[in-house]
Design a protein around this nucleic acid. Structure first.
Lengths: 212, 212
DNA sequence: CGCCGAGTTGACCATGTTCAAGGTGGGTGG
DNA sequence: CCACCCACCTTGAACATGGTCAACTCGGCG
């Protein structure tokens, strides 16, 4: 793994040089897998947009546990904070390209709003997913999310960018439970697993049922 | 319980008649305890602001389980949605007064933004609280939230507006577990319970420790 | 006084965690 | 091209946390 530093605000250069009321964009920066994009407590002068690849935002606890707050795919905005510093850590799930956007442009508010609403809706959905739901419900809900995304890209098979550990930390489950649950789905002829990181859904409706 | 209907959009009348660029406000409406303010699937033409009392937004499942997404106190905005309809149900935790604000005023965006950011931050915190945390960690985190709010109002004792069931559904725990955990805290001299709905924190630091 | 809903307490049990071992596959170097 | 290695994943068995079910207490209100 190549060590890389987070986007340095000092190296920021405007992308749009005309008078359009567009947000000030930094250069597209590449991050290798598992690289930190920003850390908890870093100044939140910029927010970020995924160009390609996938980013996870997460919280680390003193005992080493980790809660993944969300996965962000191409087009998603992340790192939008209420205070002056980031409350989560952002890392590259796989190799990815990111654009930094300078915060504080009031004129960008109207463009920001829809993205912000989307993030809020997702965060709420995530909370609903985590509370008082069984492993089967959590995993099937997660797979359905991925399936819908894949379908919207016209893909019939889900290719997982993230590890079982990532999934577990997102769903509040151990890797063992995630593994067992997925295996159970395969046994029940709901899924097909051509490879470890590939999932083909054979019985979509069954998953919808199991989600609860 | 008096049955009351949700704010009827048809009965909306402007509150501000001058030319100020303020959001169009509906009248302040009162809701009795446990009344529904809006339901999942209702049109989201308005969002709402709590004037007094407390509101819970929650998701109901087919099997009767309920996940509370958040509690909203005086001054809080709720019901801000990404789509055309509400994805959650809003109910009055206790008797409360609510103002409806018409959605779609572009000029209100800049006023909406900070509230939206706050809601996003809270939702993220909530997700972190729900995933892979023990009952002790969840309850202590919840009590600390309440304690800080109470302290900001200059109150030394927390007065709970919500039932144990509400707390359980917020934290993803059963009422029994909530009850046992709080009782354990009292036993450990961390809390004092003058009444069922009153909590005095005796050892704040211990709670911070337990929160993890 | 008795009822009723909210809360507490106890005993048992199920789900998911923990710990431990074994498998698999992609990449690297001989 | 094959052997090895390592990270990732899978599988199994014991265990613990919190859920379930049930009984009981408490306090407010008719």
């Amino acid at each position: 793994m190549t060590v890389q530093f987070a986007l340095a605000p000092t190296s920021w250069t405007p992308f749009h040089k005309d008078n359009e009321a567009k947000p000030a964009l930094g250069p597209v920066t590449h991050f290798d897998q598992d690289c930190e994009i920003y850390g908890e407590g870093d100044g939140a002068d910029y927010y970020y947009k995924v160009v390609s690849g996938m980013v996870r935002t997460c919280k680390f606890f003193a005992d080493g546990r980790r809660q993944i707050d969300g996965f962000h795919a191409a087009g998603d905005l992340f790192g939008i904070e209420t205070g002056g510093e980031h409350s989560l850590t952002a890392e590259a799930v796989n190799d990815c390209s990111i654009v930094a956007i300078r915060r504080g442009n009031v004129e960008s508010s109207t463009q920001l709003l829809p993205e912000l609403l989307r993030n809020l809706g997702r965060a709420q959905q995530h909370a609903v997913l985590l509370g008082r739901r069984s492993a089967v419900e959590k995993v099937s809900a997660f797979l359905l999310l991925l399936a819908d995304e894949a379908a919207s890209r016209g893909e019939a098979v889900i290719t997982l960018p993230m590890t079982r550990q990532d999934i577990g930390d997102y769903l509040g489950l151990t890797i063992e439970t995630v593994s067992r649950t997925i295996w159970q789905f395969e046994r029940d002829d709901i899924l097909e697993l051509p490879a470890a990181r590939q999932i083909k859904i054979k019985d979509y409706d069954a998953l919808v049922d199991l989600r609860g």
